[in-house]
Design a binder for these strands. Structure first.
Lengths: 181, 181
DNA sequence: ACGATTCATTTTACCCGTAAAATACTTTCA
DNA sequence: TGAAAGTATTTTACGGGTAAAATGAATCGT
């Protein structure tokens, strides 16, 4: 199982932009193993690294609301849903385990931001809803989070940004197809 | 603190491609709060989600080598470095904590894939190197990982892929500048 | 109608990460 | 020179995630 395109050249950093950690990693590999095609880390590797940075920074931004990213994801999913979600539905929609949803809901109930209620029709199911305090919090936290993300994305000017969105939709759709089994 | 561009329309999925989870999330928000500009999740949100999927899938791919992603990152960083790295250098280069490096190195020493040696000149420092077994393992695992990533990136055809790389370099360089403090 | 099966959620036992304290060594400078 | 400050790593205490087992409820098939 070898890389597909055997001799791709290292793309040099473009225009006025600076070298990043991925350029350095690829340069190191290319001096050790010049025949190895590492071009794929130029896209996939950067997506993984960038995501780590964004998540770290946005976790800091969420501290002001005394919630972490897991709780933010639960609160905003419940807020934007027209109907109360079940634990499993929420787990699927957030690409996480049921156990994680239970933990987060325990914490959110302690903080008075959300509640779990047994379904009348099916006693196995719990329906998750926000409390008024939860609604108030997330209605401030979501715009703050969007503003933070916008401050990051601001370095990407049109038409790059539009292209990025289209390309990432193609990629994410493929990944979600794979994970669907 | 409100979103910057107040009334961006929802971009419909393009060409032959399918809707993804981010399209559904944005549609849900737009029906609850039509005035809120969620366009930034079209890029940043997709990067975060795609990264989660890629990492989950590649963790599965690493199971065949009996290592996890943290250990893979350590092994490949040591492999591509011309000189033995110190624990701190490695932590910085992998954007992780020193404590995480210690834990991973304990595990890698147990598996006989890497070793820590006190520096002669400075007794505080440890120099990290691969064992021959570690070199052998990572020399197989890196091409396998590249092949896996290539199988994911394959859905992105040129010239999109080249554009994606350039755009992600701009974004990652900015994020690394921010994190540098 | 009722035992077997299936299903939703929670609990358990663990893994892996971090921040901050502890440890061990080096450098600084009075 | 030697006490104080600085630095590199490890340890500790804990947070948050998962897989798999346990629990409790619904449904299926005879």
């Amino acid at each position: 199982m070898e890389p597909i395109d055997p001799l791709a050249p290292l793309t040099p950093p473009e225009g006025g932009d600076h070298e990043d950690s991925i350029d350095r990693i690829r340069r190191a590999w290319s001096s050790l193993r010049p025949e190895m095609d590492t071009s794929v880390v130029g896209t996939i590797g950067r997506i993984i690294r960038a995501s780590r940075h964004i998540v770290m920074l946005s976790d800091e931004a969420l501290e002001q609301f005394d919630i972490n990213r897991g709780e933010f994801d639960v609160l905003s999913a419940l807020r934007r849903s027209a109907v109360p979600l079940t634990a499993s539905e929420l787990a699927r929609s957030l690409v996480t385990s049921n156990a994680a949803i239970t933990k987060r809901m325990v914490q959110l109930e302690r903080s008075g931001l959300a509640v779990r209620e047994r379904d009348d029709r099916d006693g196995r199911v719990v329906r998750l809803t926000l409390t008024p305090a939860g609604v108030d919090l997330i209605d401030v936290a979501v715009p703050a989070q969007l503003a933070f993300e916008e401050s990051v994305a601001a370095v990407i000017a049109e038409p790059r940004r539009e292209q990025l969105e289209e390309t990432m939709r193609i990629l994410l759709a493929e990944l979600e197809r794979r994970t669907a089994d």
